[in-house]
Amino acid sequence: MEKVDTSVRSEQKGTPMTDTTSNTAVLDTEFAGLETRDAHAWFGDHHALAGVSLQFPARSVTGLIGPSGCGKSTYLRLLNRMHEFIPSAAMAGEVRLHGQDIYAREVDPAAMRLKIGMVFQKPNPFPAMTIRENVLSGLKLAHIKVDDDEALMEKCLTRAGLWKEVKDRLDASGGSLSGGQQQRLCIARSLAVEPEVLLMDEPCSALDPGSTLRIEETIKELAEKITVVIVTHNMQQASRVSDYCAFFLTDGGPGYLVEADKTRTMFTTPNDSRTADYVQGKFG
């Protein structure tokens, strides 16, 4: 199932990457330290994802695009070991963070997930907690002590673009917010533990256009400091928010990576004709 060149690029952190053999992108930026090598995923007997090798550029937004069922969400969940919570799940290949395979036996998944946070499709603030408690919940969950949690909370809410709206009702329940606000609360919550990478699984699919726009602005601001990987069904969103795009596809079998490149290139002059067809809305 090797339809894609999966050659591995330089893994030295900070080295501009060059790639002379691959038909996938030459991502001319600092490497974030997160990459996958020949990653596969299964659900029981169902081979959901095959042979994905990809490196994520630092401090940028990488969009994972492709039609339904092409394995992009599965791939995202491989990146911080959320995949393994599905009882029948299995995987192969490597996911490396700063050269360390996060699936290695000696790796503590909980500690690893602190570095690679996640925002889910459906806003899921903790219903039994206030807005303040929700933002700081990660610290409590992971036993982290900070000197000034009020300042941290304000910083996270500000970065998530929610501070102005909630600063007067921090002790209200997280469930009292609108859907878009709840999703930004979830973003603030995942920022509080200061992850290096933030994975977002269709974060706007349950939201109205206004909220979507707010969150897209938030994502762009976040990318100044951290690395964002976002799954989206929405081509316009991918073109608006992402710096790089990776296009996934399935031919009925397992999903695979077609190509990855700068978003502008992917939307104008992609290497693969299927990418062109997809981004122009000819299928999917």
Partner: peptide, 25 residues
């Protein structure tokens, strides 16, 4: 299950997530 996932994604161990997220809910 979304809430449990959210707990794990924040770097919580299972008992911690159960204590702080699941039981209060």
């Amino acid at each position: 299950d979304d809430l449990r996932s959210a707990g794990y994604a924040l770097g919580a161990r299972q008992w911690r997530s159960t204590l702080i997220v699941v039981l209060p809910t």
